[in-house]
Lab assay of single mutants.
Amino acid sequence: ENVVSAPMPGKVLRVLVRVGDRVRVGQGLLVLEAMKMENEIPSPRDGVVKRILVKEGEIVDTGQPLIELG
Results as ranks from 00 to 15, higher is better:
residue 4 V to Y: 12
residue 58 E to G: 05
residue 24 R to K: 12
residue 69 L to V: 15
residue 52 I to S: 04
residue 68 E to D: 02
residue 66 L to W: 06
residue 38 E to N: 03
residue 3 V to R: 01
residue 18 R to D: 04
residue 52 I to T: 14
residue 48 V to Q: 08
residue 69 L to F: 14
residue 5 S to A: 13
residue 68 E to C: 01
residue 33 E to G: 14
residue 4 V to D: 04
residue 48 V to N: 08
residue 47 G to H: 01
residue 25 V to M: 14
residue 56 E to G: 08
residue 19 V to H: 12
residue 65 P to R: 00
residue 1 E to C: 01
residue 45 R to Y: 15
residue 33 E to Y: 10
residue 39 N to W: 15
residue 16 L to M: 05
residue 30 L to K: 00
residue 52 I to F: 13
residue 3 V to H: 10
residue 66 L to H: 01
residue 11 K to Q: 13
residue 31 V to E: 14
residue 65 P to E: 14
residue 52 I to K: 06
residue 44 P to R: 02
residue 59 I to S: 08
residue 6 A to E: 03
residue 21 D to A: 04
residue 55 K to C: 01
residue 13 L to F: 12
residue 4 V to A: 13
residue 9 P to L: 10
residue 39 N to A: 13
residue 69 L to Y: 08
residue 40 E to F: 13
residue 64 Q to R: 05
residue 53 L to K: 05
residue 27 Q to I: 05
residue 26 G to F: 08
residue 11 K to V: 13
residue 55 K to Q: 12
residue 68 E to I: 02
residue 63 G to T: 13
residue 52 I to M: 07
residue 69 L to E: 11
residue 33 E to F: 09
residue 43 S to G: 07
residue 22 R to I: 13
residue 35 M to R: 10
residue 25 V to D: 15
residue 68 E to Q: 01
residue 2 N to I: 03
residue 40 E to C: 01
residue 10 G to P: 00
residue 7 P to T: 06
residue 59 I to Q: 14
residue 66 L to C: 01
residue 68 E to M: 00
residue 10 G to C: 01
residue 3 V to W: 10
residue 61 D to N: 11
residue 54 V to D: 01
residue 27 Q to F: 05
residue 56 E to Y: 03
residue 10 G to Y: 14
residue 26 G to I: 07
residue 49 V to M: 11
residue 15 V to E: 03
residue 30 L to T: 13
residue 56 E to H: 07
residue 26 G to R: 07
residue 49 V to L: 09
residue 8 M to R: 10
residue 32 L to I: 08
residue 53 L to A: 14
residue 22 R to S: 12
residue 62 T to P: 07
residue 10 G to N: 14
residue 9 P to H: 07
residue 37 M to S: 06
residue 32 L to H: 14
residue 61 D to P: 10
residue 67 I to F: 05
residue 43 S to T: 04
residue 53 L to F: 12
residue 43 S to K: 00
residue 64 Q to W: 12
residue 51 R to E: 13
residue 63 G to W: 05
residue 37 M to H: 12
residue 48 V to M: 08
residue 41 I to Q: 12
residue 25 V to Y: 15
residue 40 E to P: 05
residue 33 E to C: 01
residue 52 I to P: 04
residue 23 V to Y: 13
residue 43 S to M: 15
residue 5 S to I: 08
residue 33 E to M: 06
residue 10 G to A: 15
residue 65 P to N: 04
residue 56 E to S: 03
residue 33 E to K: 12
residue 12 V to L: 10
residue 7 P to M: 13
residue 58 E to L: 03
residue 59 I to T: 04
residue 7 P to G: 06
residue 46 D to R: 02
residue 23 V to K: 07
residue 61 D to R: 04
residue 70 G to S: 06
residue 14 R to H: 11
residue 65 P to I: 14
residue 63 G to I: 07
residue 70 G to V: 11
residue 47 G to Y: 00
residue 21 D to W: 01
residue 23 V to G: 04
residue 65 P to Y: 07
residue 3 V to I: 06
residue 25 V to E: 05
residue 15 V to Q: 09
residue 12 V to H: 02
residue 55 K to T: 09
residue 51 R to C: 01
residue 40 E to G: 10
residue 51 R to A: 14
residue 69 L to S: 15
residue 46 D to W: 02
residue 5 S to F: 05
residue 57 G to Y: 12
residue 39 N to Y: 10
residue 70 G to F: 13
residue 37 M to P: 06
residue 66 L to G: 08
residue 44 P to V: 13
residue 10 G to E: 08
residue 46 D to H: 03
residue 23 V to C: 01
residue 25 V to S: 12
residue 50 K to L: 04
residue 54 V to F: 03
residue 42 P to S: 07
residue 8 M to P: 02
residue 47 G to M: 03
residue 30 L to H: 02
residue 17 V to F: 12
